[in-house]
Design a protein around this nucleic acid. Sequence first.
DNA 1: CTGTTAGCGCTTTCAT
DNA 2: ATGAAAGCGCTAACAG
Lengths: 337, 337
Amino acid sequence: MVTIYDVAKKANVSAMTVSRVINNTGRISEKTRQKVKKVMEELNYVPNSMARSLVLQETKILSLLITDITNPFYTTLARGAEDAAKQYGYRLLLCNSDENLEKEKDYVDMILSTRVDGVLFAPAGDSSREHLEKLAQHNVPFVMIDREVPGISSDMIIGNSKDGARQLVEHLIGLGHRRIALINGPHEVSTARERQAGYIEALKLNGIDEDPELIAEAGYKTFDATVLLERWLRMHDRPTAVFAANNFLAVGIIRSLRNMGLRVPDDMSVVCFDDLEHVSVLEPFLTVASQPAYSFGNMGVRLLIERIRNKGANPRKIIFPAQLIIRQSSARLPSAK
Amino acid sequence: MVTIYDVAKKANVSAMTVSRVINNTGRISEKTRQKVKKVMEELNYVPNSMARSLVLQETKILSLLITDITNPFYTTLARGAEDAAKQYGYRLLLCNSDENLEKEKDYVDMILSTRVDGVLFAPAGDSSREHLEKLAQHNVPFVMIDREVPGISSDMIIGNSKDGARQLVEHLIGLGHRRIALINGPHEVSTARERQAGYIEALKLNGIDEDPELIAEAGYKTFDATVLLERWLRMHDRPTAVFAANNFLAVGIIRSLRNMGLRVPDDMSVVCFDDLEHVSVLEPFLTVASQPAYSFGNMGVRLLIERIRNKGANPRKIIFPAQLIIRQSSARLPSAK
DNA sequence: CTGTTAGCGCTTTCAT
DNA sequence: ATGAAAGCGCTAACAG
């Protein structure tokens, strides 16, 4: 491996001079600058960023910790983060917690030992609190994205889950539905609680009684909803619509409905939080509350970098609105039902 | 920042002893081991992997260089890579070239300066050759994924594009189509050439003349196919089916068709390479040649790690078959057309 | 079983 | 404008 000393020797200067031309720092005569540059080319010299990090105490690496890299929401978010990171000269370490606190914990340790300059952190749940506190204790700046964690104060970028949920449910109510089921994410996750709050608010606002039987909790990953649906469909006043708390939950519901020979929206309306990106272009089907995922990531990295530069500033909280996109999966309830 | 020396001092041992308990290396009395461990806990000591990398000349970091992180194919591939990396104790640096050679070049420089132990490399095109050569010249192991680059010999994991394309086109022919258009990726990319070869082979095998008018080249990203489609639809013997060389191209086609008021498959059959994952569950619509994306990433990282351990071994080439999945977007041609 | 020395590749500080 | 010395946090090699 060619080092700064190899370059120095060949160019008949000191290592310090080479370092200066690499970093464009200090005063250097144009002549030696050119000479050094030439030698660097000849030797195919590439600075060792690890060595640099060690002395500078900064790695120019950011961690992107998300809970599901296969979910288009996080994928688009990652793209936004990547663009911003590249723009500001940061590298991105990818961590996928898989909605799993154990994996998250492992990644936090990895993050700590990597001495990253900051973390864009989508918490797996409220119990992520200790992980976040660990980061804080080690002075690692972070910004929470997509989800809040009670007891943690930091920069934050979240969507307005409650309002988005309310819009979605009121849309269903507007179509005549009054028996609306909620298949929610884990209560451990702030967005799930908020979405349920929005759901309940919408019911209240429209004088509909909340029925605990119609509220179920699942993970935020795809799952088999068959048993759940069978229970709901056996009810004497069965639900005519389902609000799924995220896109993958909706996918699970729809698949189960299909397997049971039921059609959407004819037999059951389905709406959900988060769009399915390209999918929805293909077959504009799912009625959703869409969030600006790219901005979550892009703004997140920007906030993070500002935080790194000024650790003392007051934490900022950015709340993006959710946008109701009405498509085919929700339909007016035939009054004779 | 607490270092190995802080721990050593507080535990009344040398730094070397601490290093030994961290790495479980050498012989240490159980007593001192416990003492050191206790002090590490008390001090919240976390080893600095940068310092470690510097002396070990190995970073335990792998680069994942893909061309489009928003494409479900690469997203699933990334997931596979992430799982394998985590399993083997490697971290993953995320690089998204965006099908752009300039960005790819930047990332290669970044990769070089990061001194990663290896790269999982999905080349943006044949011109990636110089980037790959640069890696080779610097002794950075890599395995090519998804795409080949002429002139580069290395470990490789690709899909059988030619055969997949042939299957797709023969499926259309079996449905009675004889005027089949191809909307291809850039000729600069090996998969595009292979898919075209498979398309042509299928035509030949079935005695259908190839019509250059029906072959178009685009990027591998979503695009507006309106102009192209208008040209095709004006022809006296217009195509009745389109083979899109990847999923995003298909999305572009279908969106344009919809905007023009045409329906799939009634007015035009559409098939493509690469599935749209979760999407297809939602609305099993698109007929595709599906590739095992997760395995591309997972096996890729495994190959890469083996390569790192044994740089001398012969390069291996793994070719995954493509699987034809017939859904709704392709239909039998009404004979009266 | 444990400690000392030297050095990984770089930059900061202080000289010249 | 340039260089020498020291040190970032760690471990290999050797010594005891």
